[in-house]
């Protein structure tokens, strides 16, 4: 494992916020830490980049124990949610800032920065003031500033949460591309599961300071390990016996003799969500938008596939 976290524990006064976490990340992979707000994911990040001290456990990067090192001594950089670009420096100066601390000639640093600008597709902005950039451009520079020092590990703390929907999609795409190009190992914190699915090689689901499950996106969705993961990832209809049915696993067809009745219809564009009453239970159903939407009150025939929760 390139990054290894062992029994990491963090307490604030008497309250434990991280409960003996252990996990690892392979080189050139992206681990997404996913969880609701307040689950401890930001604290975990701060333990990795060194801004808070760890009470117990160890953090190993590339075989080296970095648990006790100060942030500036770790080969880790962080892209913060608020961009945190230095307002008194221009784009070029911001990008170059980290190179000051690498033994590198000014000329080389400049060349490297121009290359980074090119990679970020922002060549013409070298001397622009930070305040004159758009949100997406600021985000790119913040990313570039952290990448340029070629850290062993890049941390990203909800970096796209301040961008609008469309831009967010583009940025996810770009991040993956850059990561491939530079062979970067990353830990990416988010509360957005779509983002987690599209970016993460592995996803670590966290709640109340504990790891709930580490798996690929598909793994999490198809084989949730516990109730929390099941409820947190995607939608599901829980059955009384603890089994569940995913909304897309229910197929409904217009049938005047069917056992189900449409109670609500919610048009989403590519999909249509229904609420149906079936056997005195209410079920969520998701259908692709391939036929005329069924009206409320229509009787339908219901076919479904039950999944079992593999609780440990």
């Amino acid at each position: 494992m390139f990054l290894e976290v062992k029994n990491l524990t963090k307490k604030y006064s008497s309250k434990t916020v991280l409960h003996s976490l252990s996990f690892g990340v392979d080189q050139n992979k992206i681990l997404v830490v996913l969880g609701p707000s307040g689950c401890g994911k930001s604290t975990l990040l701060s333990c990795l980049n060194g801004f808070i001290t760890v009470d117990e456990g160890a953090v190993l990067l590339d075989g080296k124990d970095i648990t006790k090192l100060a942030p500036e001594e770790r080969d880790i950089t962080t892209v913060f949610q608020s961009y945190s670009l230095f307002p008194h420096m221009n784009v070029m100066q911001n990008l170059m800032y980290g190179l000051k601390f690498k033994k590198m000639s000014r000329n080389d640093a400049r060349k490297k920065t121009l290359k980074m600008l090119h990679l970020l597709q922002m060549d013409e902005f070298a001397n622009t003031k930070i305040q004159d950039l758009s949100g997406g451009q600021q985000q790119r520079i913040a990313l570039g500033r952290s990448l340029i020092v070629e850290p062993k590990l890049l941390l990203l703390d909800e970096p796209f949460s301040n961008l609008d929907e469309k831009l967010r999609l583009t940025m996810r795409h770009e991040l993956r591309q850059i990561q491939k190009e530079l062979n970067m190992t990353m830990v990416f914190v988010t509360h957005d599961q779509q983002e987690a699915f599209s970016i993460g090689d592995q996803i670590l689901v966290m709640d109340q300071g504990q790891i709930q499950q580490i798996d690929t996106g598909q793994g999490l969705y198809s084989t949730p390990k516990n109730h929390f993961v099941l409820k947190f990832i995607g939608d599901s209809n829980l059955l009384d016996n603890g089994d569940y049915i995913r909304p897309e696993d229910i197929v409904i067809t217009d049938d005047p003799n069917g056992d189900g009745v449409i109670e609500q219809m919610d048009f989403q564009g590519s999909t249509i969500n229904y609420l149906i009453n079936y056997n005195k239970h209410v079920f969520h159903v998701t259908c692709l938008n391939r036929m005329e939407p069924l009206r409320v009150g229509t009787r339908v025939d219901v076919q479904y596939k039950v999944s079992k929760l593999e609780e440990r």
Binding site: P71, F80, Q81, Y97, G98, K100, F101, R145, S146, L155
Partner: peptide
């Protein structure tokens, strides 16, 4: 001062002196 500015600088490798000289003092200007 926005704490993450200082934290960013540190995460990029700036030690105490550099943080003060490059970030804090210019922002206090």
């Amino acid at each position: 001062l926005e704490p993450s500015l200082i934290n960013s600088a540190r995460s990029l490798g700036a030690r105490t002196d550099a943080v003060i000289k490059d970030i804090i003092l210019p922002l206090l200007k």
